[in-house]
Simulated scan of single mutants.
Amino acid sequence: MILRKEYGFEAAHFIHNHPGKCRNLHGHSYKLFVSLDGAVNPETGMIIDFDDLSKVVVEKVIQRLDHRFLNDLIPLSTAENIAVWIWDELKPSLPLLSQVEVYETLDNCVIYRGA
């Protein structure tokens, strides 16, 4: 079964080597979807409690990215590199992590399933 939860954060960045306007400082209202793939625990009836998942995601990712300058943590802060950074932060605490989706805008998204 796949469990998927949505989060959001606001952040600024620039892409220093971009040939267009993205090389300038700008911000986004990011959407993040975190997916876990695993069996339902027969004792709890869940893969993981949504609150337990949120504790990890908020601590490891949201608190560190929300209202921040992304280039301080991710120097080449493309959506692709942001997704990899998020994966790397979450995977040690969420072994059932199967996918992260990072929406930079409503219609631009990257999906990362680990290396």
Rank of each mutant, 00 (worst) to 15 (best):
H67M: 05
H67W: 00
H67A: 04
H67L: 08
R68E: 10
F69Q: 05
F69I: 14
F69V: 13
F69E: 08
F69C: 05
F69W: 12
L70R: 14
L70S: 05
N71A: 09
N71M: 03
N71I: 10
N71R: 06
D72T: 08
D72N: 10
D72F: 02
D72M: 04
L73F: 13
I74G: 02
I74K: 08
P75F: 02
L76F: 07
L76G: 04
L76K: 14
S77V: 11
S77H: 01
T78L: 03
T78C: 04
T78R: 01
T78F: 06
A79Q: 02
A79S: 12
E80Q: 09
E80D: 10
E80L: 01
N81W: 02
N81F: 01
I82V: 15
A83F: 04
W85M: 06
W85D: 10
I86V: 15
I86M: 06
I86A: 01
I86S: 01
I86G: 00
I86E: 00
W87S: 07
W87K: 04
W87M: 11
W87F: 06
D88L: 14
D88H: 07
D88G: 09
E89W: 06
E89F: 04
E89I: 12
E89N: 10
E89A: 14
E89H: 08
L90F: 04
K91R: 14
K91A: 06
P92W: 14
P92N: 13
S93M: 11
S93N: 12
L94T: 13
L94H: 04
P95D: 15
P95C: 15
P95I: 15
L96V: 09
L96K: 14
L96E: 10
L96P: 13
L97W: 08
L97I: 12
L97G: 09
S98Y: 08
S98M: 11
S98I: 14
Q99E: 14
Q99P: 15
V100W: 05
V100C: 06
V100Q: 03
V100G: 06
V100F: 05
E101G: 02
E101K: 13
E101R: 12
V102K: 09
V102N: 03
V102W: 14
Y103A: 07
E104S: 03
E104M: 05
E104H: 07
T105W: 02
T105Q: 03
T105V: 10
L106Q: 06
L106K: 07
